[in-house]
Structures are given as C-alpha cells and as structure tokens.
Amino acid sequence: MLPDPAILLPFTLAVVVIALTPGPDMTFFLGRALTQGRAAGLAAVAGAGTGLLVHTLLVSLGVSALIVAAPTLFTALKVAGALYLLWLAAQAIRRGSALLLPREPGSARSLAGTWASGVAVNILNPKVALFFLTFLPQFVSAGDPNAVAQLFALGTIFVLIGSAINLAIVLAADRFAAGMRRNPRIARAMDWLFASIFAAFAAQLLLARTR
C-alpha cells in the first residue's frame, strides 16, 4: 500500500522543505514555546499534527471517491493542483516567509487548550485544506485501485516527518528563533528552495498531461 520509492523520495524531500519553511504553523508552535515554555510548544505541535491528520482522512476519502466516479475530473484536479503549486512557488519568491514571533511572555494556557488551538489552526484554515487537496493527489495515479491507502499513507508520512522536524525546532526554540532573526537570508533561501521544488513538481505534471 506504500507509494513506489520513485514517488516516495521526492515526496519526502518536499515535505522536509515544507516543514522547514517558516509559516503559520511554525509561528504558532514557536510562539507558544517561547512565551509559555517547551511543554506548550510540544502540545502545539501535537495539535497541529492532529489537524493535518483530519485533513489527510478527508482528502483520502474524497479524492479516492472522485477517482472511482470521475477519473477525468480527478485529472483536472491534478492539473489545477499543479497550477496552485506554481502559484505557491511564485508567492514564496514574491512575498517571502513570515515568522513573526512574540518577544514577551504570553498568558498561560492549559496544555489541552494549547493542543486544541493547534488542531484549530489547521482544521479551520482553508489554505491548509486546499494545499492537501492539491498536493497529495500529485503523487497518486488516476487508475490506482489503492488510492485511499496511498493518499492516507502519504498524508501520514507528511505529518510524521513534519512533526519530527517541528519537535526538534521546539526543543531548540530559543536558538532557532534567534538564528532566524539574525540570518534572514536563511529563511529567504528556504523560500527559493520551496518555490523550486513546487515549480518542478507542477511543471513535470503539466508537461506529462500535454504529451
């Protein structure tokens, strides 16, 4: 049920780059770690990962149903997804990543409340839903009889790799945040790497559909 290694390797590379690129998730759990302590940061990471698992389940069931019911529409979804990835690449270069971290202690919250906030950050964010809906299907074939398992496996791998990286960042929150503030070029380099990988995926897909 696992994806082919030829698909899994570039997918893993993309996930690593996405996890390291500053964005709303990173701002959230780093902010909690810096203002409320390491335990709050870890709870925020767990909540964000839970939210992504919910998106993974919804995409797995919804997209797989689309494959069975309307393969042509699924192909159209993949092409639309490729165009969306190109747009994300352009936005990363044009605007850059945002990492606006609080410098003052925040109000204390329970770990359960922080976890719930992490879940909400991803579940209630339409951009996250759109990203999962367009990113994961790029790695599944329209005629794949194991689409549900493939999509869920990819989504789970996405969450596991991303959470592992995020946990490491939280454990070194002070040094990581200070380093990002001192070296904005690092974040800018991640923007370009993020854009390059997504543009390559999108171009490959679009060229394949025009042959």
Rank of each mutant, 00 (worst) to 15 (best):
M1N: 12
D4Q: 15
I7M: 11
I7F: 05
L8H: 10
F11Q: 08
T12N: 12
L13E: 05
V16N: 07
D25R: 14
L30T: 04
R32G: 00
A33W: 10
L34F: 06
R38A: 00
A40V: 02
G41P: 02
A43M: 06
A43T: 01
V45H: 04
V45R: 07
G47A: 02
G49D: 14
G51I: 10
G51F: 07
G51M: 06
T56G: 13
L57I: 13
S60K: 02
L61C: 04
G62D: 06
V63Y: 03
V63A: 14
S64Q: 00
S64A: 05
A69P: 02
P71W: 02
T72A: 01
L73W: 09
L73E: 12
F74W: 09
L77I: 08
A80R: 00
L86W: 05
W87H: 03
A90Y: 03
I93W: 08
L101A: 06
P105T: 07
S107A: 13
R109L: 06
S110P: 11
T114M: 08
W115Y: 08
S117L: 11
S117H: 07
A120G: 08
V128P: 09
L130H: 09
F135K: 02
F135M: 12
L136A: 14
Q138N: 09
A142R: 08
G143L: 09
N146R: 14
V148Q: 02
V148W: 08
V148F: 10
Q150G: 12
L151C: 09
L154G: 12
F158M: 15
F158R: 15
G162F: 15
G162V: 15
S163D: 15
A164L: 14
A164Q: 15
A164R: 15
N166G: 15
L167D: 12
L167H: 11
L167T: 15
F176N: 01
A177C: 00
M180S: 08
R182K: 04
R182D: 07
N183D: 14
N183K: 14
P184E: 05
R188P: 08
R188Q: 08
W192C: 11
F194R: 01
F194Q: 00
F194I: 04
A200H: 00
A200I: 02
F201E: 09
F201C: 07
A203S: 02
L206R: 03
L207W: 10
A208E: 11
A208V: 04
T210S: 03
R211Y: 02
R211V: 02
